[in-house]
Each structure stands twice: as structure tokens, then as C-alpha cells.
Design a protein around this nucleic acid. Structure first.
Length: 367
DNA sequence: TACTTTCGTCACTTTACGTCA
DNA sequence: GATGACGTAAAGTGACGAAAG
């Protein structure tokens, strides 16, 4: 979708007011909004919401897996292989910027991710997860073991208050997910994740609330990657003592929340744009009325020298107002270019606005 | 090349839990 | 303290597209 609005006395072919949203097949991870105000008295802005640059740098899960396979020469553990596959990436999400345009600096991760983060690579990392506070009713505290060979992973030692006392696991089934089977193998250490939900023949679905630590860790990893490849998912799940399916669902819901917030921001922004344009439109209409009144006044003046009949014409695209006579061969004043109606029609413009440059906004408006 | 299967993601929905009046 | 309304997070479900065979 592309929305182009141009209003006012724009001298140069300004950046169109363009809203370019991605199709469903191109899911933007970061949206950008750039608004530029025209230097002229008119109103011109550009809004661009579209796929961001990081799509080219992100690696699909399959690609990552392929990378892993090719790198898997040694008998390394999953984590080191995982790091090898993901280490060079740095697709830090770019947040939406509204006016004033302030670039968002990439965050450095203070958590030790299962994969190297930019900050980790710079000698950062370590740090997080010291608190053992649990928001849930703690029945079982699992000290997450991590690989001693991975400083990043071992830096996040977390006591996880896992489950409410009456938790009996998820009763849901997932038919098509690869994790549906894989989860079974992952549930070994997750007592709460066992399928004990069928108690007395009643299939209850008790909901697990993630602890603050788990949520914070997932949040930090979400800042690094909005999507996870299977290795990342497994590593995260292992680290947080969750099922991979839970990690997957969390990221899924997190992406949905991000999108929802982004939509709200976009909506608010467009609302303000609409208000501004409405106000500008009102102003121009008033100006037009004044011009018409002036013209009427001249006609009623006995000393007014009769000239060929003139009409006020306003281009619906750029809303320029021009006084033209009724003959076909009207000259324009733009760039010393003479445009005729026939020529304009030949260019494919539905209407002839001699004071406008067809190449600028008319072509985009026609599309 | 057309078809099927597998897999990941999304949109939408349901459900359980926490909070508050 | 019990209760219902409400918001939110976790999870279920079906559809879709991409990739591989």
C-alpha cells in the first residue's frame, strides 16, 4: 500500500507522503517513520513504514542450521556450535522513530545469552540474574546448570521459581509443531511440564506464569533476535528450564505485542497527520473563497477592464491555484515549460492542470 | 513443472491468572 | 474475606508461505 499526499506550495518534487506497509509475506521487524517538513509554506511530509535493513542480515533458521551443520566438524556441544552459527550476526532491532528523529542506539546485553551478543563479544556480558525473587508461588527451585565452558551462558545462573503448587502442565496438544515431539524429550527435567494434566479424566489447563527472571531473560534475548532458530530456541529453553514450545510461544506472543504497539503508534501518528491535513485543507478553502470574492469584486467594479473569461483552477494533487483563461492553449509558469492540454492528455493525465509539472506528483497520483 | 510434505510464523481465539473495586 | 469485572499473559488452532523432496 502506498499513500501519497502532497499539499501546499511545494516547489520541488518533494518526498511524497508515503505509507508503505509490507505485505503479509514480508513481515517487517522494524518499522521506520520519517517525516520531513517542507521548507516551503506548504505542508509536505514523508512517512515510510516498511521492511528494514536487517532482513538482509538476519539468518533464517534453516540457513543457520545449515551453517551449523557445516561448522560441526568437532564433537562440540550444542552451545559452542550454536555460538559459531550466530556469532557474527548483529541484527539489532531498530525501533520506530517519530519526530524528532532520534536513532535508537543498539542496546548492549547485560545478560549472558546462549549465543554471543555484540556486547558479549566486546567483553561485556555477565551480570544479570542475580536475584532469586520469585513472583510465583515457589514449590520447586531449579538451579539451572550451564556449560562451564561457556562464560556467556554460565553468567546467567538463575533460580527459577517455576510452578505454582497446583500446576499440572499444559493440556494442549500441538499437532503440526516439530516441538510437539521434541518437547517430549525436553520435558525430562521439567516436572511441571509433564503431562499430568489428565487428572481424574479431567483435562485441565493450568497456566504457567513465567518468573520475572525468565521474562527478563526472554525480553533481553528478544532485543537481540525477534525470531529464534531451533538451536537458539533449545538453548534458551535449556537455560531457562522451559520447554522449547514455551520459548517459541513466548516469542510468538512477544512479536504480536510488539506489532500491536507499533500499530497503535502508527495509528496515532496518522491521526495527527490527518488532523494537520484537515487543518491545512480548511485554510486553503478559506483562501480560495477569498480569491473568489476578490474576483467577484473586480467584476462588479465599473472600472474593471474586461479580460477574457478566467477561471480559478486548483490541482487536486498539489492544490495549487492558478488563474487561467478559457482557451485551450494556456501557458504555464513552471520552469518555463509550455504545456498544452493535448499534451497533458497524451501524457495520460485525466485532467489538465497547466501550472503543474506532470512528472512530479501527477504521475505518482495516477498510480 | 506440478505436487506433497514439513516446518515456521502469523492472526485469531481461548483460558487461566492477577488485580482491583 | 468473598466475588465479579477486567486486563493480560500463556497457550491452542487453523491458515499460509517457503523450502525440500
Amino acid at each position: 500500500m502506498e499513500l501519497c499526499l502532497s499539499l501546499g506550495d511545494v516547489q520541488a518534487p518533494a518526498e511524497p507522503f508515503g505509507l508503505v506497509s509490507s505485505s503479509s509475506s514480508e513481515k517487517p521487524r522494524d518499522d521506520r517513520v520519517i517525516m520531513a517538513a517542507s521548507k516551503t509554506t506548504g505542508f509536505c511530509m514523508s512517512l515510510s513504514i516498511g521492511p528494514s535493513c536487517d532482513s538482509s542480515t538476519s539468518t533464517s533458521p534453516r540457513e543457520a542450521d545449515q551453517q551449523l551443520d557445516t561448522n560441526d566438524h568437532q564433537n562440540d556441544d550444542d552451545r559452542s556450535r550454536f555460538s559459531a552459527a550466530c556469532g557474527s550476526k548483529s541484527d539489532v532491532p531498530v525501533q520506530l522513530d517519530l519526530l524528532p528523529h532520534t536513532p535508537v542506539a543498539p542496546r548492549s546485553s547485560s545478560h549472558g545469552f546462549p549465543w554471543p551478543t555484540p556486547s558479549d563479544q566486546n567483553g561485556g556480558g555477565g551480570g544479570g540474574g542475580g536475584s532469586s525473587e520469585n513472583v510465583n508461588r515457589v514449590e520447586e527451585v531449579a538451579a539451572v546448570s550451564s556449560s562451564p565452558t561457556n562464560s556467556g551462558a554460565s553468567s546467567f545462573q538463575m533460580d527459577i521459581g517455576l510452578y505454582s503448587s497446583n500446576y499440572r502442565g499444559s493440556g494442549g496438544k500441538r499437532s503440526h509443531s516439530p516441538e510437539a515431539e521434541g518437547d517430549e524429550g525436553e520435558r525430562q527435567s521439567n516436572s511441571r511440564a509433564s503431562d499430568e494434566d489428565d487428572i481424574n479424566g479431567i483435562n485441565t489447563r493450568k497456566k504457567l506464569r513465567l518468573s520475572k527472571e525468565q521474562s527478563a531473560f526472554l525480553e533481553e534475548s528478544f532485543k537481540e533476535h525477534h525470531t529464534l532458530n531451533p538451536k537458539q530456541k533449545l538453548a534458551l529453553a535449556k537455560q531457562l528450564n522451559l520447554r522449547p514450545r514455551q520459548v517459541e510461544v513466548w516469542f510468538q506472543n512477544r512479536r504480536a505485542r510488539t506489532k500491536l504497539k507499533q500499530t497503535e503508534v502508527d495509528c496515532e501518528f496518522l491521526k495527527r497527520c490527518c488532523e494537520t491535513l484537515t487543518e491545512e485543507n480548511r485554510r486553503l478553502h478559506k483562501e480560495l473563497q477569498e480569491l473568489r470574492a476578490l474576483k467577484t469584486h473586480h467584476h462588479s467594479n465599473p472600472f474593471y477592464t474586461q479580460s477574457p473569461a478566467t477561471t480559478l483552477t486548483m490541482c487536486p494533487s498539489c492544490e495549487r491555484i492558478a488563474t487561467t483563461n478559457t482557451t485551450n492553449t494556456t501557458t504555464t509558469t513552471n520552469n518555463n515549460k509550455t504545456t498544452t492540454k493535448a499534451q497533458a492528455e497524451a501524457d495520460g493525465f485525466p485532467r489538465f492542470y497547466p501550472f503543474c509539472q506532470p512528472q512530479s506528483h501527477h504521475s505518482s497520483a495516477a498510480s
